[in-house]
Design a protein around this nucleic acid. Sequence first.
DNA 1: TCTGGGGTCCTAGGACCC
DNA 2: TCTGGGGTCCTAGGACCC
Length: 387
Amino acid sequence: MAPKATDPSIDSRPGRRIAHLDMDAFFASVELLERPELKGLPLVVGGPRRRPGSEPGHGMRLGDYRGRGVATTCTYEARAFGVRSGMGLMKAAALAPEALLLPANFEAYRRSSAAFKAAAVAIAPVMEDRGIDEIFLDLTEVPGESRELGMRLKVAVREATGLTCSVGITPNKLLSKIASELQKPDGLTILSQDEVPTRIWPLAISVINGVGPKAAEKLRSLGLETVGQVAAANPAELIGHFGQSYGRWLFEAAHGRHDSPLVTSRDPKSISRETTFERDLHPKADREQLSKILLDLCTRLAGDLARQHVLAKGVGIKLRYEDFRTVTRDVTLVRPSRDPEALREAARACLKRVDLDRKLRLLGVKAGTLVEEGGFLGEFQPGLFED
DNA sequence: TCTGGGGTCCTAGGACCC
DNA sequence: TCTGGGGTCCTAGGACCC
């Protein structure tokens, strides 16, 4: 099954140069721009949201926090205590009670994000957006040496935002993503394919984007802990354990081979809203409160759909029970819609199909199979083919 | 002292159609 | 009456990422 040379999922141009640019401790660093006097202190961003337009949060002692938030980002000083992004704040507080907890200010982060991306694109116009704090850039056609281009990118980002970033430049996305991590913060790492055995093989397999905790654990149980060990494994055995697709990919990735192109634009596939309650709620005893929350989620989701000029053909709910078990249900609408009432009605129909005798910690609503507003896709147009 | 919110992609079974 | 294969849609869950 040799793919054609024109296969859009493969970019095998010789001499390809891909950069991965990753902002350093992004949210925390943006906070430090507003409050430079906090530089050098252990800071954690997360928990309660700062209202758009409000004063810079004064923050609080992490040890005084009570609630269900997680650390979105933390400074390197906080990491020294063992705090990590994604960690529950109560656990983080046990590790670093004296750290300062700052509420997240997404308005400011989005502004810095737009600024660093604009600065990067001015140097290398082909960009893949990987979220608020990282991008891939295609440097293949950009004149200049890799190290010089990397320095130019870093200087441009710092001038545009006042922030540092780490850059990896290699022949592909997979290696660049690893490379940008190697000398964080404020790093610049250039890697060629030849250097994979010396620079990448000694690293833990989990450095590869796409190898998460589950796959890493399964590999470990097979005696494969480093990238090099996976590269030396029998590909047939990997396929036996992980399936044709993932097994093959794993083997190629361990050799640093990866030819997927930059994705420079994409249509949204789904839009969702969800919320974790401050305390667990019972579907029956707290019915009114849950009903209000559902309406609010549907209303916000409808607003999101309107801003994107799309209608939902599918509507789903997500519930998380107090024991953290998560279930989803979804339905296909007779007619695509973004009316809050239609969303709520569909969500209620889904709710009838789940266990409502146990307490919940989270409720979410999702719009899937999105169709363009006014588009013909999937929509029956009465009268169109009649006379 | 448990674990946010917003996404993508993949798998897999069953319905249904040709 | 039995066998069968391909294709698509729908639904549920899970791994993974930022």
